[in-house]
């Protein structure tokens, strides 16, 4: 639906007895409620950026003065996709942050910063994705899991816009886009619901992008190899065979030569080190019988 739409709501700004006693006495709490009524009746606007930037005023007296125009002032949850280094990734020409390199064989992680996550409906955030293999207009979704600042009691900041102090929490959610198995383009965005606007599972949607879901498109690279497990296996096996064959085979061969050479040298050394002992030469032939002269002992005359 095209065209502009203007709607002014006058709120009762009188003291209704405070947060406990009154009904939405605090304008910051009233605004989303008003929006809910707006969106319930004119719900198609929820699909347009303008729907979430309704023009609201603090009180009757302020009509005509500067109003509240942005989701930031209504403290609706704001979703921003983060790079893996934690930088906010804008949309289209609005960002210089290059997304990380992803590979077709990976479930690649997507992180989303949820500002004002204290107002996000529990378990309402999903990562929507599609790739070139899917039907036109088809989107799949995976639930996102809180990964940082998940404690609902941990309110670390205060929003004091429009003169009111509301404690706020910013969290990071993470999900994985399943592997694509082959190189192609993948689009994704995140969507969640404002707990104050959501009615059951409908309404109060917030997405990454400026109002409407503007998906990020990235290109996933082919992983190293041939894209086929069996071919890859043989490629690795052949290359390992060549490299290990030359290096380890060569080492095995040279160790063998060295061991043999060493053994030979040691044997040579042993042979040389064995100094021949001088042995008495055996007689060439035994003396003939009868030629042995009988030993004679000269008689020593006794001294008289």
């Amino acid at each position: 639906m095209q065209g502009s739409f203007s709607y002014t709501v006058e709120l009762n700004a009188a003291n209704q007895g405070g947060l406990e006693g009154g009904f939405h006495a605090d304008p910051l709490l009233i605004r989303p409620t008003v929006r809910m009524h707006l969106l319930t009746n004119i719900h198609f606007l929820d699909e347009s950026p303008e729907a979430r930037i309704g023009q609201m005023f603090g009180s009757y007296n302020q009509i005509g003065s500067e109003g509240i125009y942005s989701p930031e002032d209504t403290m609706m949850p704001t979703l921003t996709i983060l790079s893996s280094k934690g930088e906010s990734v804008g949309f289209q020409s609005d960002t210089d942050v290059s997304f990380e390199k992803y590979y077709a064989n990976d479930d690649f992680p997507v992180k989303v910063l949820v500002e004002n996550s204290q107002f996000m409906k529990k378990d309402s955030i999903f990562l929507k994705y599609r790739n070139d293999n899917m039907m036109e207009g088809e989107w799949k979704e995976v639930p996102m899991i809180c990964s940082e600042n998940c404690d609902v009691k941990a309110i670390g900041d205060v929003n004091s816009s429009a003169g009111f102090n509301i404690q706020k929490r910013d969290s990071v959610y993470k999900a994985y886009v399943p592997e694509t198995e082959e190189s192609m383009n993948v689009q994704f965005y995140a969507v969640a619901q404002d707990s104050r606007l959501a009615s059951q599972n409908f309404g109060g949607y917030v997405t990454t992008g400026y109002g409407a879901s503007e998906p990020i498109e990235i290109f996933v690279d082919d992983i190293i190899g041939f894209g086929n497990g069996i071919v890859d296996f043989f490629a690795v096996a052949i290359m390992m065979g060549i490299i290990y064959g030359v290096v380890w085979g060569g080492l095995y061969k040279t160790v063998g030569i060295a061991t043999e050479a060493e053994r030979r040298k040691n044997e040579d050394d042993e042979v040389k080190n064995k100094a021949p002992k001088k042995k008495a030469k055996p007689p060439t032939k035994p003396p003939a019988k009868g030629k042995i002269k009988p030993r004679t002992v000269a008689a020593i005359p006794k001294e008289g």
């Binding site: 064989n105 992983i223 190293i224 041939f226 890859d232 490629a235 690795v236 290359m239 390992m240």
Partner: peptide, 9 residues
């Protein structure tokens, strides 16, 4: 995967 990065040309 490490082997692929090391060995597949």
């Amino acid at each position: 995967m490490g082997l692929k990065f090391l060995f597949i040309p």
